[in-house]
Write a protein that binds this DNA or RNA. Structure first.
Lengths: 333, 333
DNA sequence: CGGTTACATGAAACCGGTTACACGCAGAGA
DNA sequence: TCTCTGCGTGTAACCGGTTTCATGTAACCG
């Protein structure tokens, strides 16, 4: 394993010069620099990141906190893969790596892992309940970005979709298609996306001059079964809606199932619009019209914000990133 | 930030003793040990992993090489999330972390990242074509585990499902349901799972005394559209099969679509069995009967093998792990 | 021509751990 | 009593980088 001293010896310069060649190339004489680089390539020198981190306290590693416990078995994050791709790509373009932090690891909670590994920042993906270790972490001033849920701290922010705007778009689309009795299957009120999408739905109705009828609002759980059950409640009500905006695609598909079972047709009898644009949305029949989230955008926005915070080129605390949504029109509305 | 010297000072012992308390507790006097631990907890001492790695050359980090390039856009690994959970959990139980390696990063290829970060091992997930950097890595003696595809090297092995066995099970199940003209939609012949599942299909036919008719074998691409196209070809043939084993669930669902469009019913006219047990399999109607892979098993087996190699308690090279499959009977066969 | 300045480089301390080796001491055996 | 052993501990070198500060040299200026 070639070390910096070995390389320095072979080049006839000091280790300080070699170090500068890699970290501060412009201060070293071009000839010297070329020579060092040539010899480095020949002997296969690679700087040791551990030594580097030890000296500089910068690891170029970002922690990924992705809680999987307290979930129902079989639960999957709808966009994990896309987010990961976005994160990985955007971070690596900036020279950072992603370290997956264990959930309940032997080294205690996440804040410890951050200190032990000199992590430069952390991204929370789908942190369920407010974990005290995470709050402590965010409060401690470590750059943090949370996906889909707000978080506070001196250098903490979040990235989230324009949930309210997306919901508005969905409702307005239904309106344009001539629907007037527009119901919604909302997400759990305690979740931020659930609350925001419901607010967007209400705002849209108000904007369109439609009455807000309580019977048209039912709450689901973001799962297919919850959407199914919610739709059945809507169908049993006195006045049947002619359209439904589901705050999540899985619920929308559950709703479609319930509608079909009731002998009704989508979209003729009841139009359906979902939210998320999960893979399945394009595969069901008819294809689900839905409000697409910018999945990779979560990753890239998180990476950009994080690096800006680390470099100190971001406002403190930085404003949240709000990702635009896009209505994808398929067959259900 | 408390360092080991600070802790040693406060305890009135040397740094060597403190270090031993954490790494070799049994050699230090119980009273001394207790005291060190108490003071450590009080001042919040945490060992610095970079310094540790620098001194020991062990990082307790495993690299994750997950290539996403050269893929069609929108492509998703069917089990990424489950594998990740399995990996993360199993590794963290053994004190290891997972470092996601950038695909085409600034630091060159993967083997460099391994050396730079003193990685203890690497897992390849879904490495498409044979990347020379990966082969070099495996040859170099770094512990490597590849998922779903074989790899060779002094300390390299792979974990794979019992593809042939699973395919046999599927075909035998169709036979038991009375089907005799059993077709298959195979995966691409160049892929290992594709080839193995086709071999299992053939072996099953032979074992059951059924003739192997060329017209009953068509090749797909593991995607829904490929399965659809393949099924159409099967339907156009002279003698229509009464059952089809698709080497992947997506293809199976594509096939179901083609069958429905042809005015035929599943499973009455044509029974369908898939392979993988993707999420969608339970959601289509009728539910897809399929050969389930042990998704989390990939992660846990990889972690166990890797750690065994690192600890030197594994054969060299270690034998591949072959994960059992399980037939899940739903509505299509 | 003396003095200032800019530039390129080197010596050495430092980051925070691990560990080989030496050492002091108590108890055992001769 | 003297040596031998083994246990518990400390000293100091080492891992492989970065960075402060000092130094030598050449160019520049009045």
């Amino acid at each position: 394993m070639a070390t910096i001293r070995e390389l320095a010896r072979q080049c006839g310069v000091s280790v300080a010069t070699v170090s500068r060649v890699f970290n501060n190339p412009e201060v070293v004489n071009p000839d010297t620099r070329q020579n060092v680089l040539r010899v480095a390539a020949r002997i296969g020198y690679l700087p040791n990141e551990s030594a580097r981190t030890l000296a500089t306290k910068k690891s170029y590693m970002i922690g990924l906190v992705w809680d999987t416990h307290h979930r129902r078995p079989g639960w999957r994050h709808p966009f994990l893969q896309e987010i990961l791709i976005g994160l990985k790509t955007a971070l690596s373009e900036r020279g950072y790596h992603l370290l997956m932090l264990a959930t309940s690891d032997g080294e205690g909670s996440h804040d410890r892992a951050v200190r032990r590994h000199n992590l430069d920042g952390v991204v929370f993906i789908d942190n369920g309940t407010q974990d005290p270790a995470l709050l402590r972490l965010a409060e401690s001033g470590v750059p943090c970005v949370s996906l889909d849920r707000p978080i506070t701290g001196p250098r903490a922010t979040h990235v989230i979709s324009d949930n309210a705007g997306g919901a508005r778009t969905a409702v307005e689309h239904l309106y344009e298609r001539g629907r007037r009795a527009i119901a919604t299957i909302a997400g759990p009120g305690r979740t931020v996306p659930g609350a925001e999408r419901l607010a967007g739905y209400r705002a849209a109705l108000a904007g369109l001059g439609l009455p807000a009828r309580d019977g048209l609002v039912v709450e689901g759980d973001f799962y297919l079964s919850g959407g199914y059950a919610a739709m059945r409640r809507l169908l049993e009500a006195d006045e049947r809606p002619d359209a439904v905006f589901a705050a999540g695609d899985e619920m929308a598909i559950g709703a479609m199932r319930a509608i079909a079972e009731a002998g009704l047709k989508v979209p003729e009898d009841i139009a359906v619009v979902g939210f998320d644009d999960i893979e399945l949305a394009a595969l069901v029949q008819p294809g689900l019209t839905t409000v697409a989230q910018d999945k990779a955008g979560f990753g890239t926005a998180a990476a950009a914000t994080l690096v800006a915070m680390i470099d100190g080129t971001a406002a403190v605390p930085p404003p949240p990133s709000v990702l635009p949504t896009a209505l994808i029109v398929r067959g259900t509305a």
